[in-house]
């Protein structure tokens, strides 16, 4: 790999710009895609690889190419800089999630409690407007406090977030759905919210609950049947 290609790859990563590193096999000639100077077929194949986030070897224009997707990290927005959030970050990071913690209560959302993590002390709806969750973003609310959780969930439901989870018992969740309904959300839309959050591991401690959340995130991301919630009776 030439220093130029390496530098361009690292720049794309710093810019959070999706690119494909294309390597001709077996010779090893490389380029970054998209590139208007390359064929439409090659650029199209690269776009597909980025969309599916699955790298692989493809024959394009009678040439064998390894197309290596370099997507920006998945994002996890956690509302509530609580104990479970502290336990969740060390699971989320190695699983490929860049985590942002949102909590306007500065004593909770402090650098000391979350070293190396992006923290926003903005109000959750303002924070969500700023971060704009997309289809590669998960949103998890953990405060148990309607005035913090509800505005975040309201914005999450209006976004394409691939995962929305809310901490709280079934009873808490039912009350929450009532409040969100009053904000104009339909039952169909609110079915996107996973409450209680996480896979049902009968988790008790903060690390166990964090594990159940990251397990469900992975299940949903990878399309496992474990990621599909049964309709409540």
């Amino acid at each position: 790999m030439t220093p130029d290609i390496l530098a361009a790859l690292q720049q794309a990563k710093a810019d959070k710009r999706p690119v494909v590193l294309a390597t001709q096999l077996p010779g090893g000639e490389q380029c970054l895609l998209p590139d208007p100077n390359r064929s439409a077929a090659l650029n199209e194949a690269a776009a597909k690889v980025l969309h599916s986030d699955e790298s692989g070897t493809f024959t394009v224009d009678d040439v064998s190419w390894f197309l290596h997707a370099h997507n920006p990290p998945l994002r996890l927005i956690v509302v509530g800089a609580v104990h479970i959030a502290q336990a969740l970050v060390p699971f989320a990071t190695p699983c490929g999630f860049a985590t942002t913690i949102v909590d306007p209560r500065r004593s909770f959302g402090s650098d000391e409690r979350f070293p190396g993590v992006t923290i926003s002390n903005a109000w959750p709806d303002e924070a969500m407007d700023e971060f704009r969750p997309d289809s590669r973003t998960a949103v998890v609310t953990l405060t148990h406090d309607p005035k913090l959780d509800d505005p975040a969930l309201d914005r999450a439901l209006k976004s394409e977030a691939f995962y929305i989870g809310a901490l709280g018992s079934r009873r808490t969740h039912a009350a929450r759905l009532g409040r969100l309904r009053a904000l104009g959300h339909t039952d169909e839309s609110m079915a996107r919210i996973r409450g209680p959050v996480g896979l049902d591991l009968e988790a008790v401690t903060a690390p166990e609950i964090a594990l159940s959340i990251i397990a469900e995130l992975v299940a949903v991301r990878r399309g496992s049947p474990l990621g599909v919630r049964k309709k409540p009776e």
Partner: peptide, 14 residues
């Protein structure tokens, strides 16, 4: 870099 896999190889392409 893993460029191609078949069967139950443990690490994906990339």
């Amino acid at each position: 870099t893993v460029t191609e896999t078949w069967g139950s190889s443990p690490r994906p392409a990339g």
